[in-house]
Design a protein around this nucleic acid. Sequence first.
RNA 1: GCCAACGUAGCUCAAUUGGCAGAGCAAUCGCCUUGUAAGCGAUAGGUUAUGGGUUCAAGUCCCAUCGUUGGCUCCA
Length: 610
Amino acid sequence: MSEEKYEDSKLYRIRHSLAHIMAEAVLERFPEAKLAIGPPIEDGFYYDFNLPRPITDEDIKAVEKRMRKIASQQHTFDYREVSPDEARELFADQPYKLQLINDLVEGRVDENGNEVAAPAETLSVYTQSTFTDLCRGPHVESTKDINPKAFSISYKPVAGAYWRGNAENDQLTRIYGTAWETPADLKEYLNLLAEAKKRDHRVLGEKLGLFTINQLVGKGLILWKPNGAILRDTLERWLRDIQIRNGYDPVVTPHIGNLELYKTSGHYPYYSDSQYTPIDVDDEAYMLKPMNCPHHIMIYKSDMRSYRDLPVRYAEFGTVYRYEQSGELNGLTRVRGFTVDDAHLFVRSDQLLDEFKAVVKLIQYVFNTLGLNDFRARVGKRDPNSDKYVGDPANWDAATDAIIQACEELDLPYIVEEGEAAFYGPKLDFIVRDVLKRQWQLGTVQVDYNLPERFELEYVTEDNDRARPVMIHRAPFGSLERFTGILIEHFGGAFPAWLAPVQAMVIPITDDHLEYADEVAAHLDERGFRVDVDKGRGRMGGKIRSARGQNIPYILVVGDAERDDRAVAVRLRTDEDLGVMSLDAFTEMLTEITASLSLELTLPAAEASS
RNA sequence: GCCAACGUAGCUCAAUUGGCAGAGCAAUCGCCUUGUAAGCGAUAGGUUAUGGGUUCAAGUCCCAUCGUUGGCUCCA
């Protein structure tokens, strides 16, 4: 099925046109409002305004009502070309529009003088009803294409946004709308949002007892409760096993480092704003570790390396601290202290491609095993117009080529984006979409020629010469906190049995069965399973309900019959009833299911190097 | 950091124009002894985020601070 491009779709035109209708309605209510821009977006549209006073819920309701009225009347969207002077006259009291007009007339030129857009000789405007906006379209022909009951601007609170996305500029009021072709589509979308909210990792984190954040400890700092710690720890052990089987060596480094270390690495000037204030001790400054690379580099440097030693792969679940802007903090997904599933590979140039491919395969394996299938890869190149990058452009090209070649050879679909590189090198990011359709950057692989240079890393070549290794930085999860948060939403709290904090709940029918329930629990516990007995006062029905609420995979009811036969009555959280089976049969089943997570991952590069 | 909204018991939420701070769940104790999605009763739980102000009277109105949420900006 070939997909129509969104920009060419009717929905796009509907949303774009509704942005104009919203501007008309806002302008009626706030005649002094200054208009910025109003484009269609993924689920609807927005328009940015500079308003004379804060907008209230009543205003929004009134604007929405007015929009429905306009949409239900007969108005055409009329296209007209105008000269720049005509446009300036039309928008004489709209300063943002005048800026846009000037930019269009002058063409767009970036700071290095490169032309981004050619100067325009004529501009276009669209008029509907009483409202005319500078716009290149496209729009619907008329309001008859818009269903007045298939949009909403009150589904989401108003937001702040900077003019032209620059924090130095005016802060505008952004009103979001969502719009669809039919009221049924709108309803379905709003339902989806409501469903997604139930899966929110912050909601489930509370319900399932996974984590908490406490003001007295500090914002953006996660306190993992026992159930959440099991999740996090299970993921960590799993990945550690995979890594060890694939030639990584675990290392451990401290949580702070001398400020000079980060000056040497070059990180400090770039990120001094987003770090906790250094700790001054004995005339020296120490920083909370914001990344693990320099520490791993110093381990590499602590020994003389031969070409035969390479690749060296150092892995650490390294906890780092970054002073993120307070407005950015969000549950588990944006925090100030987090643990990176970090590894740094020191490789020879001739090993770069294979090592890079091996890393990509490992990440793919991790994502696929967890069922995170909705991801894409993004090659982050340097922005040719920015000077924030360091290193030799020739190395940048070599690294970028290696990344793209690896994607090609692995048949990994990718997109290339300029300006998404790290300051020291290009990278490949894995972007995952969650149930809220938000995109998260999870796994990342970066090629780095710069830090080896700055730290003067070397190895001895076959000719007894000295050569410089290339570094690969990589983290499949990115951060255990963020990754766990995404997984909580991905599974909606119903984790696969190998991850579930409690794998089985034993429910005795009466107090007479408590002893046998304990026996069942002990039997499973001895075999390494996580099992609880519900000893509460309630009836069995209530306990089943409670266990299902906790999304416990296996519910084991035991009464007289089960005790007499050393059996369990097995019920799943999906409501499926597996009936009565012997305790041994259940144990075997659970063993099989949790072990099906195969660790038999063999990567070509790992074979070659072992 | 910026714009906006919000902050009441561990959790989810009530509390009329400013007029006695409440319920469900969870917890604790007792009763019931249960066969596949909530058994019954009782107890305890609060400086209404914090600090100041207006008022006879503030959870409610005003100011500041802290925090959370939706966005913006940022993200090694």
